[in-house]
């Protein structure tokens, strides 16, 4: 299971590693070779105790790392913009999902469908998904390793992440930032499915007899470990915005959308 973002990140990892190995491997070999060749017991090797400068060597040793870093820097500039988690992915209207970190579980709200779930995230394959992320507890970090990317979830603030799955399948997402006792088990299932299956899944969630409201939210906000998957047939409009503003009565909560982005 993978997606375009994860693939691009992996490729970047391989390219950058390959480039650096061009220097790293020779350095290790040089260290071993020099140590062996110039061991004190080898009196056939040359010995120049006062040789401590050489313009050629100086230029080379500043030059090689500088060129290497120059190459990497252009890579960084390009790819950081190309793979910016806030950047919408090409390929049509994204599915909007709001993710809320709780102790120690995840609440997902689908504002366009008016439904919500706990610890299960279904997405259509081959269609961009745009996450809005916040926390009601300590700082969490939202990640679906197979799809790439990672973004912090902070109370009173909204961060964004754009991902996509290439094909249907089952994955796992989780919190990556230690947040207390239930942290190791704070995972959720990610189900990538065809559009048709996704519509069917929406209907199944709508068939639930539970609704997301202040009472049921208070219930799932109770700390619990490995909470079962729960479906909410309805989620009020603006619930997520209410959490952002209410969780914190922070003076700056009104401008959190831009502020969480820091730009």
């Amino acid at each position: 299971m993978t997606g375009p973002i994860a693939e691009a990140e992996k490729l970047l990892l391989l390219k950058a590693s390959g480039l650096m190995l061009l220097v790293v491997v020779p350095v290790i070999l040089m260290a071993l070779a020099f140590a062996w060749r110039y061991r004190a017991t080898n009196d056939r090797a040359a010995y120049s105790p006062d040789w401590d400068r050489s313009r050629v060597v100086e230029i080379t040793v500043w030059g090689i790392p500088a060129i290497m870093v120059g190459l990497l820097a252009t890579m960084v500039w390009d790819k950081t913009h190309a793979l910016d988690p806030y950047k919408p992915l090409p390929g049509g209207e994204p599915l909007l999902v709001q993710a809320v970190a709780l102790n120690w579980k995840w609440l997902f709200i689908y504002p366009d469908h008016g439904i919500a779930t706990v610890n299960e995230l279904a997405i259509p394959a081959d269609r961009p998904v745009s996450f809005r992320v916040t926390s009601q507890v300590a700082m969490n970090s939202f990640i679906i390793p197979d799809l790439g990317g990672q973004i912090y979830a902070m109370a009173g603030m909204e961060t964004q992440l754009n991902l996509q799955a290439n094909e249907p399948g089952k994955m796992q997402g989780r919190n990556m930032q230690f947040s207390g006792t239930g942290f190791p088990q704070q995972t959720f299932d990610v189900l990538a499915m065809t559009e048709a299956d996704f519509d069917g899944w929406i209907e199944r969630v709508r068939a639930s007899d539970q609704a997301l409201d202040d009472r049921s939210f208070a219930e799932i906000s109770q700390p619990s470990i490995a909470a079962p998957v729960t479906y909410f047939a309805s989620a009020p409009q603006g619930f997520f915005a209410g959490l952002l503003a209410g969780s914190a009565d922070m003076p700056h909560a009104a401008d959190t959308t831009a502020e969480g982005a820091g730009n």
């Binding site: 870093v69 960084v76 973004i151």
Partner: peptide
């Protein structure tokens, strides 16, 4: 991963790598 913009992240990423230059010099 805190959600700063691409420019900010890229600049700090590059600044970090620049440190690799003097460090590499030392190793050589």
């Amino acid at each position: 991963t805190m959600g700063a913009g691409a420019n900010v992240n890229a600049i700090f990423g590059i600044a970090t790598m620049v440190i690799a230059v003097p460090t590499g010099v030392k190793v050589f």
